[in-house]
Computed example of a mutant assay.
Amino acid sequence: MLSTWEDVKTLGLSLGLPKVEVATSWGNENLKAHGKMWTWWSPYVEAAIFKGDIEEREMLMAADPDTFILHSHYAKHGLLLVAAGRIDPDWAEARLRGTWRQLAPKRFLKDWDAGLVDQA
């Protein structure tokens, strides 16, 4: 299980995906993909934050409330908070890869899928 921001950051950077960078937003380190926030650590609660949507978050919280949590700061946003020490690396990798694809411009993704883009 992943327990810290360093664990999540290391996983994200290890995926070898292009257009991924370490950045700082609102005074906190995060990873950006294609210039957009991709994953980060909450400054409000010990949890990693991944992109998702409110319906998915509600379903995950109902299924596993010890792992998928919510802080009031994020209530209006489609973000998934995963409690420190309960972040499954396989789940996180699949989530990061899927989100990376969602954030990619369509033309870039077409070239990536065709093998025309070098890895990071």
Rank of each mutant, 00 (worst) to 15 (best):
residue 38 W to S: 06
residue 102 Q to W: 07
residue 52 G to R: 03
residue 76 K to P: 03
residue 67 T to M: 09
residue 38 W to M: 09
residue 107 R to W: 01
residue 5 W to Q: 00
residue 65 P to F: 03
residue 114 A to G: 09
residue 28 N to A: 09
residue 35 G to A: 13
residue 113 D to Q: 13
residue 120 A to T: 07
residue 35 G to T: 09
residue 101 R to Y: 02
residue 3 S to R: 13
residue 107 R to H: 06
residue 115 G to S: 11
residue 32 K to R: 15
residue 31 L to E: 09
residue 109 L to C: 05
residue 60 L to P: 10
residue 94 A to Q: 13
residue 75 A to H: 03
residue 62 A to V: 07
residue 94 A to C: 00
residue 37 M to Q: 09
residue 42 S to W: 08
residue 48 A to K: 10
residue 101 R to F: 00
residue 84 A to C: 05
residue 44 Y to C: 11
residue 21 E to Y: 01
residue 8 V to Q: 09
residue 25 S to I: 11
residue 97 R to L: 08
residue 27 G to A: 05
residue 112 W to Q: 03
residue 4 T to S: 15
residue 71 H to K: 10
residue 38 W to A: 10
residue 76 K to G: 14
residue 94 A to R: 14
residue 54 I to R: 15
residue 102 Q to R: 12
residue 2 L to N: 08
residue 112 W to G: 02
residue 80 L to E: 01
residue 22 V to T: 15
residue 68 F to I: 08
residue 5 W to E: 00
residue 83 A to L: 08
residue 42 S to H: 12
residue 5 W to R: 00
residue 81 L to I: 02
residue 54 I to F: 11
residue 105 P to G: 01
residue 75 A to Y: 01
residue 83 A to F: 04
residue 50 F to K: 01
residue 109 L to H: 02
residue 75 A to D: 07
residue 65 P to R: 01
residue 111 D to V: 01
residue 20 V to Y: 06
residue 111 D to H: 12
residue 110 K to N: 08
residue 59 M to Y: 04
residue 54 I to Q: 13
residue 62 A to D: 14
